[in-house]
Amino acid sequence: MTMRVECHPVLGNLENQRRITIYYDDQAYQAYEGDTIASAMMAEGVKTLRYHEVSGKGRGVYCNIGHCFECRVCVNEEKIVRACLTPVSEGMRIHSLS
């Protein structure tokens, strides 16, 4: 399933997007170069990016511009980043936090 807006009546069509592979919780997903982690996962229909550290309830993108910190994920087993502000790169390994 992809949620890409390939065609747009005003902004035009997406063309020649370079596809890359990223891994979220060890599963491979297709992303476009230029995606943020948040947009790449949303395009693949993945809405839950982390689990609340106390209640364990799922959380996803809320503000999409770095204000709320709800979409934080772990990248390459070392960095905690906001998915909405972090561009994807080939082979990036992303893990959800809980």
């Binding site: 949620m3 890409r4 807006v5 390939e6 747009h8 902004l11 997406l14 995606d35 943020t36 948040a38 947009s39 949303m42 395009a43 809405k47 839950t48 990016l49 609340h52 309830k57 799922g58 959380r59 996803g60 993108v61 809320y62 503000c63 999409n64 511009i65 909405c84």
Partner: peptide, 25 residues
């Protein structure tokens, strides 16, 4: 409102127009 799939209107705008991804149908 903390459920995944709930976002600010601005978040959806950026997702659609900038990243060209629909948060849903």
């Amino acid at each position: 409102w903390t459920l995944p799939g709930v976002m600010t209107i601005g978040a959806a705008q950026i997702m659609g127009n900038v990243h060209r991804v629909k948060p849903g149908n």
